[in-house]
Each structure stands twice: as structure tokens, then as C-alpha cells.
């Protein structure tokens, strides 16, 4: 991914900073500039998520895209954050440890790198909550 495109989202990627609509009180991650529920009546502000959630569904990736192929097999899941929204992220755990409904917490990891001489993309993954 082009550096500016990654860089722009560093607050969201590192610290789960999303948005909240003050009109309907709904939280969104990743951040949105328009509230999908209130649309023009929405009032958007930044919102930091706690990073605690639950596994909605998951898979174990055996055949990965470039930049992720050294990590296989890895667990990928949709996580419902306690504040409401769902996000896609890797879960750092044994593939046979993962299950639907598992409580997870955010951790800081290397997500991908653009080859050995490119920029390293850091961000949020999850681990079983301790």
C-alpha cells in the first residue's frame, strides 16, 4: 500500500480511533465522515475504542496474499468491539484455540511489510483476552 494511504490511517490502525455520531450515539470503526444511520443529520466526532471484543466468525488462512504469505497459517476473524461495530483483524492464537464467541483484546503487531526494503505497516491485531 502506498505510504500516504497507510500513513493517513495511522491513528485508526495503531489506536483503534474511529468515529461516533453524536446524533444517534452509534460508534463506527473504521472512521467514517458520514453517519450511515443519520446521514446529513449526523454529527461525527473521533472516538477511541477500548480494544475489547468478541469473535463473530473466523477462518484460518492457509493461502495468503503477498506480504502475508510468511505468516500462514494465521487466524483471521470478524470481531465485534464492545462499543458495537465489527472489524476484520488477525487473532494471534493457535488455530485450534479459536472459537466463535471468544473474548479478545487488541495488541500491537506488524501487519505487513512491502518486501525487505519497503515500509513496515504496524497496526492492531487481537489476542485471547486474559
Amino acid at each position: 500500500m502506498a505510504v500516504p494511504r497507510f500513513w493517513r490511517n495511522i491513528p485508526a490502525r495503531y489506536n483503534l480511533i474511529g468515529t461516533k455520531c453524536l446524533t444517534c450515539e452509534k460508534c463506527y470503526f473504521p472512521p467514517r465522515t458520514t453517519c450511515p444511520a443519520c446521514r446529513r443529520a449526523g454529527k461525527i466526532e473521533m472516538h477511541k475504542f477500548e480494544g475489547i471484543g468478541e469473535v463473530v466468525t473466523y477462518t484460518v488462512i492457509h493461502s495468503a496474499s503477498e506480504g502475508f504469505d510468511r505468516q500462514t497459517p494465521y487466524v483471521l476473524a470478524i470481531i465485534r468491539l464492545d462499543e458495537g461495530p465489527c472489524m476484520t483483524a488477525q487473532i494471534v492464537c493457535d488455530p485450534n484455540e479459536i472459537e466463535i464467541g471468544m473474548k479478545v483484546q487488541s495488541i500491537f503487531r506488524k501487519i505487513a511489510e512491502e518486501g525487505p526494503d519497503g515500509v513496515i505497516c504496524y497496526g492492531t491485531k487481537f489476542a485471547p483476552k486474559r
Binding site: M1, I61, A64, S65, Y74, T88, A112
Partner: peptide, 12 residues
């Protein structure tokens, strides 16, 4: 940005 760069593949 929020699926593929998190490690998702289409089959995934």
C-alpha cells in the same frame, strides 16, 4: 484498507 490490509483474502 480494512479487510485486505488486515490479512483478509477473498476466499478468507
Amino acid at each position: 484498507e480494512w479487510e485486505v490490509l488486515m490479512g483478509a483474502t477473498f476466499p478468507g
